[in-house]
Design a protein around this nucleic acid. Structure first.
Lengths: 108, 108
DNA sequence: TGAATATATGAACAATTGCTCATATAAGCG
DNA sequence: CGCTTATATGAGCAATTGTTCATATATTCA
């Protein structure tokens, strides 16, 4: 029986290339900051514009913008414009899944 | 119907406390470094002593030890002694799950 | 068009991080 | 017991990071 789980893909790759781990680490690094994780969690509830996120989480608008830029350039969030506002939302459901995974560990 | 998923727990908590997000970020931070992620992935294959990890991943013994200390104090890995060797292994299956989650995202 | 609002961005700075190098601790073995 | 092997750890350092403050850009609306 062939094993095609993601974990076995890693195990194959472990001896071959190191780039994969860089990417993996890079991904987790995005969740490894309280501000960013809060933003991501907020966006699991609903799309939000920058000022909403900023108020909701009590983080400076500037700090939020800086973090959103990182999240966007990493393709974790996407944007659309609505008048004066830029509405941010999660790019896909992976973010939810990953946060869920982490929460399972924390709230064990 | 009551929603008891981990994600909804977060959504409840989001307005209440901030500590949860610190813990969550702290957890992800552990996976957010290539050396540590490599070590963790290696340990999903089998338990290993320090020098094995060091050779296998081509990371200095000292660097490995430093990282293992972090992983151990965060309860992601545990140890037992076997003669001169200290054998490291994953504390539980959460690590596998979390890595798997991340890999799903990377290898989409 | 000009004022107001929303967002982005650059520079600067403090804090954190992960490594290396040197050395300490600890177990096995002759 | 001394020597060797395995692991841990502290100091120091360079690199990265996240914030703040000031300011730039962009859109709406009177």
């Amino acid at each position: 029986m062939e094993n095609t789980s993601a974990i076995s893909k890693i195990q194959d790759a472990i001896t071959r290339n190191s780039e994969l781990f860089e990417s993996l680490a890079q991904l987790y690094k995005l969740f490894g900051d309280a501000s960013r994780v809060k933003i991501l969690v907020a966006l699991t509830q609903s799309e939000m514009c920058v000022s909403e996120i900023s108020e909701f989480l009590s983080i400076t608008q500037s700090a939020v913008s800086h973090q959103l830029r990182i999240l966007k350039s990493s393709n974790l969030v996407k944007t659309r414009r609505d008048g004066k506002n830029i509405i941010y939302s999660l790019t896909d459901n992976h973010v939810r899944t990953i946060i869920d995974c982490g929460m399972e560990h924390i709230t064990e």
